[in-house]
Write a protein that binds this DNA or RNA. Structure first.
Length: 922
RNA sequence: GGGCCCGUAGCUCAGCGGUAGAGCACCUCCUUUGCAAGGAGGACGCCCUGGGUUCGAAUCCCAGCGGGUCCA
């Protein structure tokens, strides 16, 4: 780490008279214009702005954002619109946007695509779930925040590769100077600013960085991203990995909008500065009312709250006690005073988090970002209930959604209400389950075991403290282990990383990118090309051409098939893939390197895939119109006879909605609008259409291909029909839930739609034929038949009872004396039900019943014994069944059994009297 | 995407190889007519679907469908 020391010696520091100093308390190195004892950051120093704002003027959140952005605009930066908080919309390695630099990873930072502007400034909404436990308690942590930033993307002049930007815009000195100047524009005395050296590591990159401290508060972080992970790298960073310099180097700054606003107001906590209206509403509603003395105490405690960071202290209670000690008040009293306020702060923050998430189209679910949204919502709900706030949660979230300017507020509220209902149901289910378990253990005077506790949480989502509460009411003890969540994690085991060793074919890397002709004319099926190379594979050959009409598998569209012909031979193309821009045609035979070939693709297959692909766009578009703007693609797969589109939605799609989607989709087909493609600059496309472009993933490159169908625009590499009318018809075949929050729509397009409809009709006609009614009468008739069938079942049961009684009445005839009781031994070939009923009837007459049957292909016995007779029916059956090669058993008064040897049945029954006598006598 | 739990009467669930059960709700009668009333009787089940194991499956195994939950 010390190897980086030189990286912090800036000319700017020299010119401005900064000196490098070491904190007497924590030992970190920092730069300041005047000599200091400590680094300025808690716990080495206290907050020095609570009640005494640190800037000349006070700002609201909106004013501060605007001030920052226009300051950097004046310094030559272009202002960029913020990205969604759902970062998985443009990258697959993270779920949520946690910093402004996320917007530009990985394609811009690696130099593959250019930034939307350079340099640029932005205020990016972010969500950091890892801060969730700190929210409300420290006074400065928020889960949702805006990171104001300016970025500059530089590439080394001596770099080997080609990069989407070149040269140096600016680097460390300018970045620190901008920071100083922005502080000065706020009226800050520059001698109070401290730059702490704090190397940064994250996401495979690293570099030197400064934390910027003013009056005890970290207001900005200036990161100089310049290294990438490299096992042979010369620098070892704090994460234990080695890093080496990279060809691009990037200024990555983060100015916390909320903290700057807070600094300007000097309120006890950041929350009061950021959303004062909501805090007022919540405190009022929760009935929190403080005396002047209490308010003073709260303010005093706030000054010291910087010590409370649950990540850095062992025990919140003792840290709180230390604060109480300092203020000379009772710790319990202080806690009682602060805790409701902390919950109010947390609620306001969580509601903002939810507004961002749901507003940006995250649908609550059991996976991915949806699961995070669900967790936040449930936590918020618990806090709201804990404070007895009677405003509905959807209204609280809506207050933040309104403030943040979202337009889909009705959908947001709908999703919140749906989630609340699901949570309530889960809690009710859990309560019943825990109650019955608690009663059981209370009765046995045992504590509820850990294993049960863990299972309740893991399988039913019931928090251990809730189990403890309910158990106490029922008088059962619970032992909640300290490392409870660790035990849960252990239950899940280790998730092994699967490494994909992608062996690069050097011959392949030397080949030029294959020209893709299918974009020029998507309906052509023949072309000519030159075979550039042929790779022998285990099961055939991969043929590389200079240009091709074959579509390689991708974007949920399967590859084309067809033939490649030379003058001498024709080879079948069975699969087509694309690697690093090179299209590989899999064939059974080698057409010959350097040969001139005519390619011909299977037109029926391709056109069917095209119809399904365009239909997928249309169905998605229609679903968005019918279900709401939050609907987006979660996956898609096209085939020749059907396609499926997985969409994010917070409810099952009803039959009515399916019909409506189908109607809207077919309307678009009948309108016969043109389907067009274009290759605009990616940033222009993003600016014009937003990230909803990337329904099927984010393509690399400076230019991206867009497909327009009516108002629908998507980045898409697939092949499409030229007019919607070419699809013919779209038939939605069904829906199925893929996971919570994701519904699959299965549909067929064109001829496949007709065939699918015919298949459905065939099934109906077959049913109608069997029932011998008209197709339209099938539902009614089926209903009637089913009712009648059930009625007959009952009737048969009644008749069997009667029959059994009649049979039993004839007992005397073939009764045998077995000691002092009578036994009826009889063969009657009937099913098990009848045997049982008859045996029961005989037992009611006071006799032992031994019945045998060969019905149903096997020998069966039923033995019944009256209450007052000392004979074990199970033993009898066991012995008899043994004689027919099987087994049996049951309770002492009524047993059943049998075996496969039907021929031995009569002999077994003949032996039955002896068996009975023997068993009675032993 | 992975793990775990659950599908039985209208509802909530028990039963976990041997004749399908309880509470609530429902219907009839009695007693009362005071806030979850009491008593007697009654009706109500493709035990999610399809395979397998077994003499025998609601019960065990496999697959599917449906619901829930935890984790990444």
């Amino acid at each position: 780490m010390s190897e980086l020391e030189d990286a912090y010696r800036l000319e700017y520091f020299e010119e401005e008279g900064f000196t490098r100093q070491e904190c007497a308390s924590c030992g970190v190195h920092f730069w300041a214009r005047v000599d200091r004892e400590t680094c300025g950051e808690p716990p080495c120093d206290d907050y020095a702005f609570i009640g005494t704002p640190g800037f000349d003027e006070t700002y609201t959140l909106e004013e501060m954002r605007e001030t920052f952005l226009s300051f950097f605009e004046d310094q030559g930066h272009e202002r960029i619109e913020p990205y969604p908080v759902a970062a998985n919309r443009w990258r697959d390695d993270v779920l949520l946007t946690q910093a402004s630099i996320y917007d530009f990873q990985p394609l811009v930072t690696s130099g593959e695509t250019p930034p939307p502007a350079n340099p640029l400034t932005i205020s990016q909404p972010c969500i950091r779930m890892q801060d969730i436990d700190n929210v409300g308690k420290t006074g400065r942590h928020t889960m949702a925040f805006e990171m104001m930033a300016h970025h500059a993307f530089n590439a080394r002049d001596d770099a080997d590769g080609e990069y989407a930007y070149e040269g140096e815009v600016y680097w460390k000195d300018e970045t620190v100077e901008y920071c100083d100047r922005f502080f000065e524009s706020m009226g800050v005395d520059p001698t109070e600013i401290v730059y702490i050296e704090d190397p940064w590591v994250g996401g495979g990159n690293a570099g030197p960085a400064f934390e910027v401290i003013y009056r005890g508060l970290e207001l900005a972080t200036l990161v100089f991203m310049s290294m990438e992970q490299d096992p042979d790298g010369e620098y070892e960073m704090k994460d234990g990995n080695r890093y080496s310099p990279m060809d691009t180097y990037i200024v990555d700054t983060g100015y916390g909008l909320e903290r700057w606003t807070w600094m300007s107001q000097g309120t006890p906590t950041v929350y009061e500065a950021v959303y004062p209206d909501m805090i007022d509403f919540l405190t009022d509603n929760a009935g929190i009312d403080h005396s002047a003395a209490e308010r003073d105490l709260i303010q005093e405690a706030a000054r010291l709250s910087g010590y409370l960071d649950v990540d850095e202290i062992d025990d919140l209670a003792s840290a709180r006690a230390a604060v109480a000690d300092e203020l000379d008040v009772d710790a319990a009293e202080l806690t009682a005073l602060l805790e409701p306020l902390e919950d109010v702060y947390a609620i306001a923050d969580h509601c903002r988090t939810l507004a961002y998430m749901l507003g940006d189209g995250i649908v609550p679910s059991n996976v991915g970002t949806g699961y995070l949204a669900r967790m936040v919502l449930r936590r918020t709900k618990r806090l709201v209930d804990g404070l007895d706030i009677d405003a509905p949660l959807d209204e609280l979230v809506d207050m933040q959604a309104d403030r943040l300017g979202y337009t889909n507020r009705d959908t947001i509220r709908d999703m919140v209400r749906t989630e609340e209902r699901k949570y309530r149901e889960t809690l009710e289910r859990g309560r019943r389950k825990v109650e019955s378990i608690a009663e059981e253990y209370a009765e046995r005077a045992e504590p509820i075991p850990r294993q049960t506790l863990i299972e309740l949480y893991d399988s039913h989502g019931i928090q251990p403290d809730m189990v403890a509460d309910i158990a106490r009411d029922h008088g059962a003890a619970v032992d909640v282990p300290d490392d409870f969540y660790g035990l849960v994690a252990a239950r899940h085991g280790e998730g092994g990383d699967t490494e994909s060793a992608d062996e690069r074919d050097t011959r392949l890397a030397d080949l030029p990118e294959t020209e893709r002709l299918f974009y020029d004319d998507q309906e052509r099926i023949e072309f000519e090309a030159v075979v550039l190379d042929v790779f022998e594979r285990e099961d055939g050959y991969d043929v590389v051409l200079d240009q091709t009409m074959f579509y390689p598998a991708g974007g949920g569209q399967p590859a084309d098939t067809g033939t490649l012909s030379t003058d001498e031979t024709t080879v079948e193309v069975t699969d087509v893939t694309r690697r690093d821009g090179v299209v590989l045609h899999r064939t059974a035979d080698d057409p010959g390197k350097g040969e001139f070939v005519r390619g011909r693709i299977d037109a029926d297959r391709r056109f069917s895939l095209m119809r399904h692909h365009t239909a997928t766009h249309i169905v998605g578009h229609a679903a968005r119109q019918v279900l709401g703007d939050h609907v987006r693609q979660a996956g898609a797969q096209k085939d020749t006879d059907r396609a499926r589109l997985d969409i994010r939605h917070f409810r099952r799609v009803s039959r009515e909605e399916v019909k409506e989607i189908e109607r809207v989709a077919n309307e678009l087909v009948r309108d016969n609008v043109p389907v067009t493609q274009e290759w605009p600059d990616r940033h222009e496309a993003e600016a014009e259409h937003g990230f909803d472009l990337y329904q099927g993933g984010v393509p690399p490159g400076q230019q991206i291909r867009l497909i327009h169908v009516d108002d629908d625009v998507q980045a898409c590499a697939g092949t499409h029909v030229s007019r919607t009318g070419d699809i013919g018809a779209i038939k939605i075949l069904g829906t199925e839930p893929i996971q919570d929050g994701v519904e699959r729509l299965v549909f067929a397009a064109g001829e496949a739609a007709i065939e699918a409809t015919q298949d459905t009709e065939d099934a109906l006609y077959a049913a109608a034929d069997t029932l011998d009614v008209d197709p339209e009468d099938v539902p009614e008739t089926a209903e009637r038949f089913f009712q009648e069938w059930k009625e007959r079942g009952k009737q048969i049961d009644r008749l069997k009872e009667e029959l059994a009684e009649v049979r039993a009445a004839a007992t005397d005839a073939d009764a045998v004396d077995v000691g002092d009781v009578a036994a009826v031994i009889r063969r009657m070939d009937a099913d098990a039900d009848e045997l049982r009923a008859t045996a029961n009837a005989i037992v009611d007459e006071g006799a032992v019943a031994v019945l045998g049957s060969a019905a149903g292909g096997s020998a069966q016995f039923v033995v019944g014994v009256p209450d007052d007779v000392d004979l074990n029916a199970g033993e009898v059956v066991g012995q008899l069944a043994g004689r027919v090669g099987g087994g049996g058993g049951g309770p002492p008064d009524f047993a059943q059994g049998g075996g496969p040897d039907v021929d031995a049945l009569d002999d077994a029954l003949d032996d039955a009297p002896d068996v009975l006598r023997t068993i009675r006598n032993t």
